[in-house]
Design a protein around this nucleic acid. Structure first.
Lengths: 225, 225
DNA sequence: TTTGACAACTTGTTAAGACAAGTATACAAG
DNA sequence: CTTGTATACTTGTCTTAACAAGTTGTCAAA
């Protein structure tokens, strides 16, 4: 017999009909739940055979969600130190180069510069650009404590839903090296991100600079094509 | 009136009932199609209001799919040059560090080292590790022409479906610099990837090294949480 | 003018059922 | 032993129906 790839024969789930009977719901509802698990990559399904659980994976830091929640999910303690909180009149150049969603001109933005730490160790320098018209009264908000996303939710009702990002390598300049405690010229990852709401409202422009040693962006269970 | 974020009021789609009537299908079927568009981030939906198209985005190179198809989707011409094609007895160390899915020990792998080019310009050096038991007869396969994924499909019936990846910054060493035509110490992105089939079979381990100048990994329409 | 009730939409969710198509098993025929 | 067939499973796809819940506009009452 010809040997295929090591398919780990995992436990099969009960059939859709059995699940429907057990939980006293319709098969449509069972299928909705199973399809969602399938899209998340937690199970796979085979016509005529059944549904099977996939091997489990721990959550990683993807660089797309809230820094606070992502680090907490990874089991560590996130902290932030505000470096600067000023008004600027334009976005960094790289933003326009990498991201398709162009910002309107003649805008002014709050620029929130923070050093992001995991377990008290600095791992990233991050500049968040927030439209001043979108966030009235942000000057008086307490962005120090809690995550920015929580503040966006609480004060203005904004819910981040989508992220468009571009990632490129770079080297630390003097300012970045100082903030992250690395030497000048050390490898870093520069991530450009535009976060939008479900309704396609632009909520923030972010430039993140991650240190390269001992910290990696991971993407788990990414569906191909 | 307080001004919110610039929500671009885009064209509303016909209601589910109208679509069902127009195409002579049930509303459930219409909803399946609309939900899929929603998951892809192409439309958004609001209860009680309707479904709306989101702004369009061009496709970018994500680093997760087939290099060939991704570059073609971006509108460029991908080419590859095989640097080496040998048998090895273990995976690079970084693979075990970054990726959760551990390979079985005492294995042997085909190692296919390629320089990846876009429009004849080298942009990445890539080592693909293929389990020798999984791909019998790979030595005689013509991996030169066409993409490796197409060969995997044609000869063994394998279909890549999921990718787990880790991305970290680095600097080019002498060999990499020579392959990519950049100077030693130039910033690069190192991507570690495990590709699996829908049935959770490991199909390949990949180490990619992307040059940093004028080439960025992009992720578009990434759903948060 | 402002307010509130109401009708007419919209999407969200669930139900119960039918048929197609792929898979696995048992069993008889060769 | 091998092969084919029938049968009973499985998931995939689709239909018709009902109700919940949020939004929008109309219109009468205050």
């Amino acid at each position: 017999m010809q040997q295929g790839p090591s398919r780990s024969e995992r436990t099969a789930l009960p059939s859709e009909n059995k699940l429907a009977a057990e939980f006293k719901v319709s098969r449509v509802t069972v299928r909705q739940a199973l399809d969602e698990l399938h899209r998340k990559g937690l199970i796979y399904r085979e016509k005529g055979r059944g549904s099977y659980a996939r091997s489990q994976h721990i959550g990683g830091v993807t660089g797309f969600g809230s820094f606070t929640s992502e680090v907490e999910n990874a089991g560590s303690k996130p902290t932030s130190r505000i470096v600067e909180f000023v008004k600027v009149s334009s976005l960094p150049d790289g933003m326009k180069i990498h991201l398709a969603k162009l910002p309107p001109k003649n805008k002014s933005y709050h620029c929130l510069a923070r050093v992001r730490c995991v377990d008290s160790r600095p791992v990233a320098y991050e500049e968040t650009y927030l439209d001043t018209e979108t966030y009235p009264g942000l000057e008086r908000a307490d962005v120090e404590k809690g995550s920015l996303y929580a503040t966006m939710r609480r004060l203005w009702g904004y819910e981040p839903a989508w992220a468009d990002a571009a990632i490129e390598p770079g080297v630390a300049d003097e300012a970045i090296a100082k903030h992250l405690g690395i030497r000048v010229g050390a490898p870093v990852v520069v991530a450009w991100r535009v976060t939008s709401s479900e309704q396609d409202e632009v909520l923030e422009y972010v430039r993140s600079i991650y240190r390269g040693d001992g910290f990696a962006l991971t993407v788990r269970r990414h569906k191909i094509s």
